[in-house]
Simulated scan of single mutants.
Amino acid sequence: MSLRLVVRVLSELCVTVGTLIVLFVAYVMFWTGIKAADASDGELDRLQERWSRGRVEAPAAVPPPGPAPDSPAPGTTAAPAPAPAPSAPRKPAPAPKPPETAREPAPTGAPGPGPAYRDGRSFAVMYIPRFGRDWDWPVLEGTRTATLKRGLGHYAGTAPLGGTGNFAVAGHRRTYGDPFKDFPRLRPGDPVVLTDGTTWFTYRIARKPLKTVPTDIGVINPVPEKSGFSRPGRYLTLTTCEPEWGSSHRLIAWARLDSTRPVTDGRPPAFHS
């Protein structure tokens, strides 16, 4: 076999491998974002439709409404009956992004039993003004890979939205719409607003995000470890991957419930803070 033939074969192999790599990167950068945008918009549409019919997803049990220690008293109480849902604007298709390992961006366990929403079904919408005026994502029950391709995932077994305990939510840092791309920008006092179709829940970030390992499931305990909280309260935990293009660690942010407001009273002031 001549040297020229060997070089030619190696060159063709390099071109073929390079083409496959480019196609894979294009798939991760473009196609997963497009699919995630379509999937999350579909979840928002389904939520709007259910709420407009008065069908609000609720856990099997609801904690008592009284404020818990170490948690500020809500500003108002929830409406006793379903009300018209707040608007859920569609998100534009995200910009191209490099690939990330397709793994769940948070610890895989959830300590303790708790009320359950329907697995894989959306039940709320989350807004984080720090991430942009148009940032809105559906929250679904469960943190399986397929679920996180359609939105954010609530850890099964953690507290229900607005309830006493720790309402813990996971989301991708990169790929599948990059919902938590700007996670490191979170600062103490930033609002995280959610609605279940009848009530607005405004949580406030308590501290800058913490870096930890995937096996550190204590961060989603009812009183989350390392959060600085020492007593039962109404808490929110957000988790995502770290580093930005990897999954060897996790970033964690904690918040506590600041106020509630019926959707009939309009959007909470946190949207304008």
Score class of each variant (00 low, 15 high):
Lys149Val: 06
Ala255Ser: 06
Pro262Trp: 01
Pro268Met: 00
Val22His: 07
Arg256Leu: 06
Pro84Ser: 04
Val192Met: 03
Ala78Gly: 11
Val17Cys: 06
Gly142Leu: 04
Asp190Ser: 04
Gly120Lys: 07
Pro84Asp: 06
Thr158Cys: 07
Val6Gly: 06
Ala68Leu: 14
Val6Trp: 11
Pro262Thr: 02
Ala124Ser: 11
Thr77Gly: 09
Gly157Cys: 04
Val213Met: 13
Arg46Cys: 08
Arg234Ile: 05
Pro80Trp: 06
Phe30Ser: 08
Ala39Trp: 03
Leu257Ser: 00
Gly266Tyr: 02
Arg50Gly: 03
Thr16Glu: 09
Gly54Arg: 08
Ile220Ala: 10
Glu100Asn: 11
Phe30Trp: 14
Asp134Cys: 06
Gly266Gln: 03
Arg121Asp: 13
Gly246Asp: 09
Lys211Leu: 14
Arg207Ala: 15
Ala146His: 09
Trp245Arg: 07
Arg187Pro: 01
Ser122Arg: 03
Thr198Ala: 14
Trp31Pro: 01
Pro86Gln: 06
Trp31Glu: 14
Thr143Ala: 08
Ile128Thr: 02
Glu12Ser: 12
Tyr235Val: 03
His249Tyr: 14
Leu238Asp: 01
Gly233Tyr: 01
Arg8His: 08
Thr143Phe: 06
Glu100Leu: 09
Leu148Glu: 03
Gly266Met: 03
Pro113Arg: 13
Leu44Tyr: 00
Asp258Arg: 01
Pro129Asn: 03
Ala61Phe: 10
Pro80Met: 07
Thr77Tyr: 06
Lys149Gln: 15
Ala37Lys: 14
Pro269Val: 00
Leu152His: 04
Leu140Thr: 02
Gly153Tyr: 00
Asp196Glu: 05
Leu238Pro: 01
Pro160Ile: 00
Val9Ser: 05
Asn166Ser: 07
Arg207Trp: 03
Ala102Arg: 10
Thr175Asn: 11
Thr76Glu: 15
Arg234Thr: 13
Ile220Asp: 13
Ala36Pro: 03
Val6Leu: 13
Ile220Arg: 05
Ala206Glu: 09
Pro232His: 08
Ser122Ile: 01
Ala81Glu: 12
Ala81Met: 11
Asp136Tyr: 08
Ser122Trp: 00
Arg174Phe: 07
Pro86Trp: 02
Pro98Leu: 12
Ala60Tyr: 08
Ala270Gly: 01
Arg204Met: 02
Leu13Val: 15
His154Trp: 15
Pro222His: 05
Pro84Tyr: 04
Asp258Ala: 09
Ser40Trp: 07
Ala95Asp: 12
Phe201Ile: 02
Thr16Lys: 09
Tyr176Met: 14
Ser122Asn: 01
Thr260Glu: 03
Leu148Asn: 01
Ala159Glu: 02
Leu236Ile: 07
Arg207Ile: 02
Asp41Arg: 15
Lys91Ala: 14
Gly42Leu: 00
Ala79Asp: 08
Asp216Ala: 15
Val169Glu: 02
Ala170Lys: 03
Gly75Pro: 00
Asp182Trp: 08
Leu13Lys: 05
Phe30Ile: 15
Leu161Asp: 04
Lys149Ser: 09
Asp41Glu: 13
Thr215Met: 13
Leu238Val: 02
Gly189Ala: 04
Tyr127Ala: 06
Pro84Met: 04
Gly162Val: 03
Thr164His: 02
Ala61Arg: 12
Arg90Thr: 09
Asp178Thr: 08
Leu194Ala: 02
Lys35Asn: 14
Ala58Asp: 05
Lys181Gln: 14
Ser230Phe: 11
Val56Met: 05
Phe123Lys: 00
Arg118Ser: 11
Asp178His: 06
Pro113Met: 10
Leu5Glu: 11
Leu13Glu: 07
Thr32Lys: 01
Tyr203Ala: 01
